[in-house]
């Protein structure tokens, strides 16, 4: 990575106008995955002086600034008590502690990394992304948004649904990328299932969810839902895991997860 200028933005407006001065300008969050690219930048724009590092506990939702680090997020009592703690749990699976002291919630989501544990953990909840210039989009919509989004991610809000959640990251060693992510929640009497790192970015298993919505949830329905989930999403091989094994794992953990949240 080569960088000509490093700039601390004084306001979101300032950051936004700087960003659009050149297509070689970019926002830097934690900057961890950025390091691995061979990109050349004119100006990296740092948002850390804009107060985007707070977690606010509001009546119906929790609002998390984009510059909140993964470590601050997982450690926050508000997040830990939110939705049976599953979001904190998902974030804690990312690399080591030092890494999580640097990586941010905003960077983890905005990059839409296919291996993201953060996205996999949040996607089964009611999560909205807030941008500058002012715009709001659900996490699910953002993941399917075509092309690079033009605005700056400033906050995310997580609805307090009193959800019950389950999160499983399958990995070889503790510092490994996920071989597969399985997340499940039950909120407002509806079951949500998502699979990430198949190796594609996490996605909801809408057909399986629909099936569970329409049928009494017993052992048979759980088995059936796990089958449907694996049929509706795409899986493929990676260097260290086959498509077939991914599917076998997904079925087992969907069944286990559903039983846990019921």
């Amino acid at each position: 990575m080569r960088v000509k200028n490093y700039y601390y933005a004084s306001s979101l407006e300032d950051a936004f106008s700087r960003l659009h001065e050149s297509n070689k300008n970019a926002i830097i969050a934690g900057g961890l995955w950025m390091k691995k690219t061979a990109q050349e930048y004119d100006t990296l724009i740092d948002l850390s002086k804009l107060g985007l590092d707070k977690i606010e506990d509001k009546k119906d939702e929790v609002v998390v600034g984009a510059m909140v680090t993964l470590r601050e997020f997982e450690h926050s009592p508000v997040i830990q008590s939110l939705n049976s703690g599953m979001t904190a749990f998902a974030v804690r699976e990312v690399m080591g502690l030092q890494f999580r002291n640097m990586a941010t919630i905003g960077g983890s989501i905005f990059g839409r990394y296919p291996f993201s544990d953060v996205i996999a953990g949040l996607i089964v909840l009611d999560v909205a992304l807030h941008f500058y210039p002012e715009a709001k989009m659900s996490l699910v919509d953002y993941l399917s948004y075509k092309g690079k989004y033009d605005g700056i991610l400033t906050h995310i809000s997580i609805k307090k649904d009193n959800a019950k959640g389950y999160f499983k990251k399958v990995k070889a060693t503790a510092l490994d990328f996920p071989l597969l992510n399985i997340s499940i929640s039950k909120r407002n009497n509806k079951l949500y299932i998502a699979l990430g790192s198949r190796p594609m970015t996490a996605a909801l298993c809408l057909k399986a969810m629909d099936y569970l919505d329409k049928n009494p949830v017993d052992d048979e329905a759980i088995n059936k839902a796990s089958e449907i989930a694996c049929e509706e999403l795409m899986f493929s091989d990676s260097t260290n895991i086959s498509k077939e094994y991914r599917i076998d794992l997904a079925k087992v953990y969907i069944r286990r997860g559903l039983k846990e949240v019921l």
């Binding site: 960088v3 490093y6 601390y8 830097i28 900057g31 961890l32 390091k35 691995k36 990296l44 740092d46 850390s48 470590r71 690399m95 080591g96 502690l97 030092q98 890494f99 002291n101 640097m102 510092l175």
Partner: peptide
């Protein structure tokens, strides 16, 4: 030098971070 081993850990405002992967400019 790729944020994966922890050998380069320093504390930044009392928090352990990986000095190999944090731009010096961020320490301002």
């Amino acid at each position: 030098n790729e944020s994966a081993c922890g050998a380069c850990t320093v504390l930044l405002d009392d928090k352990p971070v990986l000095s190999c992967s944090i731009l010096s400019a961020k320490a301002e």
